[in-house]
Nucleic acid binder design. Structure first.
Lengths: 337, 337
DNA sequence: ATCGATTGGGTAATCGATTACCCGAGTGCC
DNA sequence: GGCACTCGGGTAATCGATTACCCAATCGAT
């Protein structure tokens, strides 16, 4: 363990400078030297020490990513997309989970900064509580928020247009004939949770349909099941339930069916995200697709342009979502509208 | 950006040695010096450079983990468990996905080694093709295999006793009255895939029941659905299907029900893993539970003991799985056996 | 008073790779 | 032949934190 460039240089009978130059090709050496160094490196199994290189170059070839949790399939999908995107540029990803806890999130950011990552991509777990840690990090290193963001708009962000997505979903169920709608989402702790609710409310109000009290819990299958139970226990069902993500929608459909309701005949259900198993549940879920690949590519591209403590105004790139109609919502009626 | 210990020392009016000692507490300094250094560090917002520290100490406080993919809920669960386990010792996790590709896996190992991780935890994607990269890595740094492993037994391993788990599952469905059984698993590219099949075959042969041709594909929901379709298209259903993981089982149940078969009345279905949504599908899935927390704890503990190129024989720690009976399998009949 | 030990602080080496800087040899041109 | 360049190689500084080593001051004991 621990073959250094000095060992290679000695074995090749040249100076460390020549060895380094031969290996990196950043300055010319005679073919003779190049040959000897290459042979020595191969024989000794030399592998450059990335730590030393990072110290000298003041750059680690690493970017840090912090997401609320990797249990949620949306985040695993976006992590994979970011990793794929980075691979092209030879940078590695240090992945951390904040476990939906702003304190853990702040600690993870600290250690990523101590490890001198070249940049950060973060989906802040809490729209308010995450503010100080995120702004502090953005002051020290290029940072881009992906999907979720903190309030105030002071840091760059790439994500889907949450409000527009919910408008699509609401207009779709109304076009299918729904006269009463309800929103099943998450407590309003994240930007996604808030914007999706407000998009829902705006579209529903504009359409003039009956709007029930929203059901707010977690972004999980469990909460979807619970929300379905509550709907069943609260008198006549609404015509449509619009959910803040697919997990909730899948759980909700399951609970409604278990309680004897038919989907979509009695109730239309629409999800959000279109990752994971939306195509493979029963019935296949109508949902709003987030363009995950595009978001990841855009985040990486933007990260390359951002500088730490950038004085220029923060960019906010909202990518348009797309409605994907499957079988959990009633088809659009010819006489609608 | 870039406050160094020299800056702190200058601001405090002491040498870098004193500053370092005051901050680390590894040698005594006068209260006066301690106070001035602490104040200077706080005022300047000093944060030690982990890269420089790693170079000097020859240890990075980081361990690398390579799993086949984070789309599979079993791996996300085990990653989370390992991360929790490591957090206590203050070490960070560099997580990589091999995407089920031995070449990608080898490259990821290379970069983790270049970054001088203090250890590696790996679930090798291919029982044969992963051999050279894993053995090479084990020669250079402490390495523990978790869950999957390479053939030959040359590297340490922690996991569940796959064969024993399948025996539990088979004996359970037979106790429930099954006279014909089939295995739905994955192509035999990983140790898990092979051992689970062999456990199945051994138990079924011993019980003397009819054994159909196994269905081998991927560890995914999609493959479970496909496997279910194939069963439906191949004449009379077997009494029981034992699956290599829960994803397959959930997909298979869905396909069978869609095709009109009743679970568990017509067919018993048993999964493996008991992570993710086994409790929340319909019907709740009977499965073999992997003690993920315990496996993660054991892997981290073992990693602390392993040395690179350890001459002592490799350890193989197989933790006993536990059968969890829910509603996808017929209950054990009083008259059985 | 003197000697040895202890205490606390400073200087500089160290980790490994890169590269600024310097130097000698060779080349081309007048 | 002499001058200006180019080319390729070597020496040592650099990145930042830690610590081996050294030194001065103080204290206690004889």
């Amino acid at each position: 363990m621990g073959v250094t460039i000095h060992d290679v240089a000695r074995a090749a009978g040249v100076s460390v400078a020549s060895a380094s130059r031969a290996l990196s090709g950043r300055r010319k050496v005679t073919p003779e030297v190049a040959e000897r160094v290459a042979r020595a490196a191969a024989e000794l199994g030399y592998q450059p020490n990335a730590v030393a290189k990072a110290l000298r170059d003041q750059t680690t070839g690493t970017i840090g990513m912090v997401v609320p949790g990797i249990g949620n399939p949306f985040f695993t999908t976006i992590v994979e997309a970011v990793e794929r995107e980075l691979q092209n540029s030879g940078t590695d990803l240090l992945l951390c989970s904040s476990r939906y806890d702003p304190q853990v999130e702040a600690r993870r950011l600290e250690t990523l900064l101590a490890r001198r990552v070249d940049g950060l991509i973060i989906s802040p777990c809490d729209i308010e509580a995450s503010v100080p840690a995120v702004l502090d990090a953005a002051r020290r290193v290029p940072l881009v928020q992906l999907d979720r963001h903190i309030e105030g708009g002071a840091a760059d962000w790439v994500g889907v247009d949450d409000e527009a997505g919910l408008v699509l979903a609401v207009e779709h169920v109304i076009a299918g004939g729904a006269r009463s709608v309800v929103f099943a989402g998450s407590r309003l702790v994240s930007s996604s949770a808030r914007l999706r609710l407000s998009g829902f409310e705006r579209a529903a109000a504009r359409a003039g349909v009956e709007v029930r009290e929203p059901l707010l819990g977690e972004f999980t299958l469990e909460w979807g099941i619970e929300a379905g139970r509550r709907l069943l226990g609260a008198g006549p069902l609404p015509d449509a339930v619009v959910c803040a993500n697919d997990e909730i929608a899948v759980g909700l459909v399951r609970a409604l069916r278990f309680g004897g309701a038919r989907v979509p005949e009695d109730v239309s259900v629409v999800g959000f995200d279109d990752v994971g198993h939306a195509t493979m549940c029963d019935p296949p879920l109508s949902t709003v697709r987030q363009p995950v690949e595009e978001m990841a590519a855009e985040a990486v591209r933007l990260l390359g342009q951002v500088k730490a403590a950038d004085p220029r105004p923060a960019q906010r790139i909202a990518i348009a979502p797309r409605l994907v109609v499957r079988q959990s919502s009633r088809p659009v009626r010819a006489d609608a509208q």
